[in-house]
Design a protein around this nucleic acid. Structure first.
Length: 626
RNA sequence: GCCGCUGUGGCUUAGCUCGGUAAAGCGGCUGAUUCGUAAUCAGCAGAUCGUGGGUUCGAAUCCCACCGGCGGCUCCA
């Protein structure tokens, strides 16, 4: 919206002739005059269609501010199309103007000139410094015009979340639902940290997150100053780790019947179905303007998959129907203060799977399966005992499904934090998350599954049952690993904790960018090292052929957390037996190249493999960081 | 978004209080060295001191604004 504000001695107008978009008016509006008045010329623009109400509210705030400064009690709203070349549809414009009039009428004497008429007018400007001002009102974008902050899209869900009342409990292994203050946390210190974090009791910490330093030192990822905050760059080693994690998630859900799809990253804010969904999802969006349409960037794959489901013909024989997408990226415009390293990003990679189930009973069965699958997923990633469970649901759902919920605690074998809502604020009736708690006692959700009881209806998704009649499926949302970047964050934080406790920090072998490092003692051993890597071409082996002492190169391999380090000299050249240092056990073994290769292959067993993502010779590698 | 702290070669930092030719280590490059499990020696290159304004004869240093980062608050699908 464009505003031109004139502090006037008087404004008067007289309607002359209607245009094709003219609104119907009563005789009183045909001509008018106000004195000692703030005249507001208004052009409602196409961008404002994304959120007419917020636009009107923001504009009203701006007008109030100036009215206060120039100490006037009267306001004339005057539609003035010529302030913009990107006008809104007339219907929307009239709505916004009426809303603006209504809002301001509470505190001021307000008149509104009719929309869509040719009018003769006279205005007298007072001419003092504040008497002429223009303002651009933009909802959902920042830094345009003089308005900053507070004019972002805040969805209804985000607003209702502020009002939602949570009841906190712990569900014990005995199936007891205890109020949080009655639970004895003595045996469960991390669950206590998690509970405190969630309920915001204490969070006194003043350290830099360890993973931020590690992600750079290990040349995995870094901030990208050329982009928006929270949009990271990934170096080759970080990219490799990401691809491996992604592959493992896709393989796992593929194994349980999910089919992989791809959907667009941006959607029209004015699409009626999407608009309603936005209002039920508590996240802030990036919005972008293209020609005259406004789009938002997706924060998950729900939109694309549901729109696809809507157009599909689905039989009960196809259920449960699973579709998955590795969203590169999901975008969420998090508040600045919440962004840290790889923990919380504005652009992130997340596996997003949706399962259409025949009804709630089937959904509950599937939920259980996926819950178990998520446990295995985190164990595979290397976070087996490193998460706490949160289960959140509505009171109604609990009443009807107590046994099911108790079973979940039994499966994971430890008490869970429970959040209970009196009524349903979101699209789901139950969700769980597995949360990683880091050294700074901050909690981050990884795996999650939710049972959605709203979107089948909203997107008009249906299947045909045995009797040939249409039914609404119940939909599960599942992210088996949570955001991929966040998994890397958790692994780095975990390694840091290990190191602080006196252990050897490391990544799981299947995720290590280099699995075997060969260190030729002298130049004449490089050729043989090359033969050894050739014999190990299905694991990631590389050669530190730099002209440095053995000691220095061994140290470098240690700083890279490489699981197996081999020094190759005359002895190995003659015997064909290698001296292998096993990082995790801090000991040396004598093995042939084939034995070492088999050891690594056995260790990464069912996990995905990709070839090394840098030159095998370290002398050929550029330095990405430090 | 708000409050506080912070920003100096690729990296880590010194210099800033009290304005006067930007210093070191690591890394990189070149050469020597061909070395047996956590840092070999020598030399060289590399900095519009976050950006933009201001004060001053003179600004990395003082002032203002903005932009990143970190911590806290808020919040977390």
């Amino acid at each position: 919206m464009q505003l031109l504000l004139i502090h006037s001695d008087y404004i008067e107008y007289e309607t002359k002739k209607r245009t094709p978009v003219a609104e119907e008016i009563d005789p009183a509006m045909k001509s008018s005059r106000m004195e000692e008045v703030l005249t507001a010329f208004v052009a409602v623009e196409s961008y404002d269609e994304a959120d007419p109400i917020a636009t009107a509210e923001n504009a009203a705030d701006e007008i109030r501010k100036l009215a206060g400064q120039v100490k006037t009690e009267r306001i004339m709203l005057y539609p003035y199309a010529h302030l913009s070349s990107e006008l809104a549809k007339p219907v929307v414009a009239v709505d916004v103007l009426k809303k603006l009039e209504e809002t301001l009428s509470r505190d001021y004497e307000v008149k509104r000139a009719p929309f869509g008429w040719y009018k003769a007018f006279k205005v007298s400007c007072k001419g003092h410094p504040l008497s002429e001002l223009s303002r651009t009102i933009r909802v959902g974008t920042e830094g345009k015009g003089e308005k900053e902050g507070r004019d972002e899209i805040v969805s209804e869900a985000l607003k209702s979340e502020e009002k939602a009342i949570s009841h906190w409990h712990v569900l014990t292994l005995d199936g007891e639902l205890l109020p949080i203050e009655d639970f004895d946390f003595k045996e469960h210190p991390i669950l206590l940290s998690f509970a405190e974090y969630e309920t915001s009791k204490s969070r006194a910490v003043d350290k830099i997150p360890p993973h931020v330093e590690l992600m750079r030192r290990l040349e995995l990822a870094d901030y990208e100053p050329g982009s928006d905050s929270g949009n990271m760059r990934f170096y080759p080693k970080g990219t490799l780790i990401k691809r491996l994690l992604e592959a493992h998630v896709l393989d796992t859900v593929g194994g349980m019947g999910a089919v992989e799809v791809e959907t667009p990253v941006m959607y029209d804010v004015n699409h009626p179905t999407l608009k309603k969904y936005l209002d039920r999802f508590p996240a802030r969006q990036y919005s972008i303007e293209s020609d005259k349409r406004s789009f938002f960037l997706r924060f998950a794959a729900c939109f694309g998959q549901f729109l696809m489901n809507h157009d599909m013909t689905i039989s009960h024989r196809n259920l449960p129907l699973k579709m998955v997408e590795m969203t590169r990226y999901s975008f969420r415009r998090e508040q600045h203060g919440e962004l840290v390293g790889l923990r919380r990003l504005r652009a992130f990679t997340m596996p997003d799977m949706h399962t259409l189930c025949a009804d709630m009973d089937h959904a509950i069965d599937e939920f259980k399966d996926q819950y178990t699958m998520c446990m295995k997923m985190l164990a595979d990633i290397g976070l087996e005992d490193d998460y706490e469970v949160a289960i959140r649901f509505t009171r109604d759902f609990y009443t009807e499904n107590q046994d099911f919920i108790k079973e979940l605690v039994g499966i994971v074998g430890k008490p869970a934090l429970i959040e209970l809502w009196d009524s349903r604020f979101f699209y789901f009736v139950i969700k769980f998350e597995f949360n990683y708690i880091d050294a700074l006692k901050k909690a981050s959700a990884l795996s999650t599954v939710q049972i959605d009881v709203e979107n089948a209806e909203r997107y008009d998704i249906k299947y045909i049952d045995k009797n040939g009649t249409e039914q609404r499926p119940t939909i599960l949302h599942c992210s088996p690993s949570g955001a991929i970047e966040r998994c890397i964050y958790a692994l780095l934080e975990k390694a840091h904790l290990t190191s602080k406790a006196g252990g050897v920090p490391s990544l799981p072998t299947w995720l290590s960018p280099t699995q075997v490092r060969l260190i030729p003692v002298a130049e004449r051993h490089i050729g043989y090292a090359g033969e050894v890597t050739a014999a190990m071409n299905d694991i990631r082996a590389d050669i530190d052929d730099r002209d440095e002492t053995v000691g220095k190169r061994v140290r470098a391999a240690g700083r890279e957390w490489i699981p197996y380090v081999v020094v190759i000299g005359d002895k190995e050249l003659e015997s064909g037996v290698l001296s292998v240092t096993i990082r995790s056990e801090s000991r040396k073994v004598e093995e042939t190249a084939q034995e070492l290769r088999s050891r690594v292959i056995a260790e990464i067993a069912e996990m995905p493999y990709r070839q090394i993502n840098l030159p095998v010779l370290l002398s050929k590698r550029p330095v990405f960081f430090g």
